[in-house]
Computed example of a mutant assay.
Amino acid sequence: MFKPTALNLPPATLKLSRIQQKVYVFDILRKKNLLLTPEEWVRQHWVHFLHQFKKYPKTLMKIEGGLVLNDLQKRSDLLIYNTKGEKILLAEFKAPDVKITSKTFEQISNYNSIHKIPLLLVSNGLEHYFFKVDFVTSTYTFIDELPIYNKET
């Protein structure tokens, strides 16, 4: 059973419950209990952080958005839309004990080859990477932090 660990994010008020010897976390986006795994621990902290500190509306966040990549069904960890319904942020989360490697960046890049989203986030809860994608020049630039939500974007 996963034992929650401290992350390199502000503390989040997560609602945990125990059901038949398993720990669940209440997902504020899907409004249901999910089995608490290390990756889910990271994702739920990020959802709270993005909403509370970066002002991204919960109603514009979608967990595990489906996509087809090379004829395989995949799921992105978190998608955020603007009020026009355009995707503005794609996030990939790993468990805290999983190192962020070039393979992780390759995974989000592959997903983004389908989504075409200008802002990307990769995190294991301890290390965080943010970058902007320029589709005209096919380049990306690492940025120090995520911008605060702008409803004009």
Results as ranks from 00 to 15, higher is better:
residue 47 V to Y: 01
residue 19 I to N: 12
residue 130 F to E: 09
residue 27 D to I: 03
residue 23 V to F: 14
residue 61 M to T: 07
residue 138 S to E: 14
residue 120 L to W: 00
residue 23 V to G: 11
residue 120 L to P: 03
residue 75 R to W: 02
residue 84 K to M: 13
residue 33 N to V: 04
residue 133 V to A: 04
residue 2 F to S: 00
residue 34 L to C: 08
residue 64 E to I: 02
residue 40 E to Q: 00
residue 10 P to F: 01
residue 10 P to Y: 03
residue 38 P to G: 05
residue 10 P to V: 04
residue 29 L to Q: 07
residue 54 K to L: 04
residue 139 T to Q: 12
residue 41 W to T: 06
residue 85 G to E: 04
residue 73 Q to G: 07
residue 81 Y to K: 09
residue 91 A to R: 00
residue 139 T to S: 14
residue 33 N to C: 06
residue 41 W to S: 07
residue 110 N to H: 11
residue 20 Q to A: 15
residue 18 R to M: 14
residue 49 F to D: 04
residue 13 T to W: 14
residue 118 P to A: 00
residue 122 V to N: 03
residue 73 Q to C: 07
residue 47 V to D: 00
residue 32 K to A: 03
residue 101 T to A: 04
residue 90 L to Q: 05
residue 126 L to V: 05
residue 130 F to M: 09
residue 137 T to D: 14
residue 112 N to I: 07
residue 35 L to P: 00
residue 148 I to N: 14
residue 63 I to K: 08
residue 29 L to E: 06
residue 13 T to F: 15
residue 35 L to K: 00
residue 100 I to L: 09
residue 93 F to P: 11
residue 54 K to N: 03
residue 62 K to W: 10
residue 25 V to L: 03
residue 132 K to M: 03
residue 82 N to T: 11
residue 127 E to F: 06
residue 24 Y to E: 02
residue 123 S to Y: 00
residue 37 T to P: 02
residue 131 F to E: 03
residue 150 N to P: 10
residue 15 K to S: 14
residue 112 N to G: 10
residue 137 T to C: 15
residue 95 A to N: 01
residue 68 V to H: 10
residue 107 Q to W: 02
residue 105 F to Q: 01
residue 104 T to N: 03
residue 49 F to T: 07
residue 125 G to N: 10
residue 63 I to W: 09
residue 114 I to L: 12
residue 26 F to N: 03
residue 86 E to N: 13
residue 123 S to L: 08
residue 100 I to F: 06
residue 74 K to M: 06
residue 18 R to F: 12
residue 80 I to S: 05
residue 84 K to Y: 15
residue 18 R to C: 15
residue 114 I to M: 11
residue 150 N to S: 10
residue 98 V to Q: 12
residue 113 S to D: 13
residue 14 L to V: 11
residue 84 K to A: 15
residue 101 T to V: 04
residue 146 L to K: 02
residue 110 N to M: 11
residue 6 A to L: 14
